[in-house]
Computed example of a mutant assay.
Amino acid sequence: MSAPLTPSQLRARVRSGEHTGNTSGYCEGFVQANVAILPKDWAAEFLQFCQLNPKPCPIVGMAAQPGDTNIEGIGPDFDIRTDVPSYRLWKNGELTGEVNDISDIWTEDLVTFLIGCSFSFEEALLADGLEIRNLSEGRNVPMYNTNLACRPAGRFHGNMVVSMRPFKPVDAIRMIQICSRFPSVHGAPVHFGDPAAIGIADINQVDYGDSVTINDGEYPVFTACGVTPQAAIMAAKPPFCITHSPGCMVVTDLPNSRLAIL
């Protein structure tokens, strides 16, 4: 069996185009992050939106200056223009395309935000013996729009997006206990049980990612998701911005242990 990839090795594969898919299950022990890149005249409002909504939008890194392509602590070789497996391009709140490299559209007024991802706490769940269904089935985690309103900030507003993992009740309780130790990557779940209570009409119809099997005796457990900023971007309609494609994260050199509350 080959040795697991380091974050730097995986970023190199992303940069070369060898890896273009989701990053769940890669680089055990290291923080993964969602991406939002906005023009500098929208950045302050977006930062405030994240600060007012730390559950779905916990910031784990931010460019020091507009135009910066590296972020301190993420990795000495990190380049936001090439190191995300798939980017989404937005104009006036509308998705216009997905690409694997943004070098040719990068401008010096863009500000990068990295937002905590639930993939980071999956490692702790696995270590405790819990099955993560999207990993065991080799799928992207299922994600859904909800009716849970975020606190608005300037032009940014919208409802929370959640990711879902099914568990038996006893395992769901343990999952809640474990995730509570990771507030920087969404923390404890926001809902457990009936999807309709948070505005999800059909659990088998995902808004992002892939559906997974929910076995008899299992219940869906919903965690705040870093795709939430994309919903806020759709509502705010900035003239241009860039995000990650759902499930396609920045894999950082930051150890997950730094984010845990012991």
Rank of each mutant, 00 (worst) to 15 (best):
K55W: 02
V14G: 07
G25T: 01
L126G: 14
P142E: 14
L254G: 00
P195F: 11
A124S: 15
V170M: 12
A63C: 05
P39G: 04
T146Y: 10
P189S: 08
W90Y: 15
D109K: 08
R258T: 14
P195R: 11
T112L: 02
M160D: 01
V111R: 03
N34T: 10
G193H: 01
L38C: 15
V14H: 04
D128A: 15
D207T: 13
Q32K: 11
A43S: 15
V60F: 05
V227L: 12
D253L: 04
D207H: 15
P76D: 12
S180H: 14
N256C: 09
S8P: 02
L126E: 14
A196I: 07
T69V: 09
A149N: 04
S16E: 15
G187H: 07
L114Q: 12
F78D: 05
Q205V: 14
V206T: 15
L125P: 12
L47K: 12
L126S: 13
F78E: 06
I132Y: 12
F121W: 15
C241Y: 00
K237I: 01
P85D: 00
H244R: 02
M164R: 05
K168V: 10
N256T: 14
A260I: 08
F119M: 09
D207N: 15
K91A: 12
G129Q: 06
S120F: 06
G209Y: 04
P220G: 07
E137V: 08
P76V: 05
P54Q: 04
I71W: 03
I102N: 04
M143G: 13
R11N: 03
P246L: 02
A188T: 00
D104P: 00
G138D: 10
N140K: 13
H191L: 03
G129T: 11
A64V: 00
A201P: 02
A149M: 06
V111L: 09
C150I: 08
F119K: 01
A235R: 13
R155G: 10
P4L: 01
I214H: 02
N159S: 10
A231L: 15
T96I: 13
V35N: 03
A153G: 07
C241R: 00
R165P: 12
Y208T: 03
I80N: 03
R165W: 11
T213V: 08
I176A: 14
A3P: 07
G247W: 01
T96W: 04
I198Q: 03
D207V: 09
D216F: 02
G154D: 09
M1C: 13
L148P: 06
V141N: 15
G29P: 04
A153D: 07
V206Q: 02
T112M: 08
N256Q: 08
R81M: 12
V99M: 12
V111S: 09
L125I: 08
S245A: 02
F121G: 05
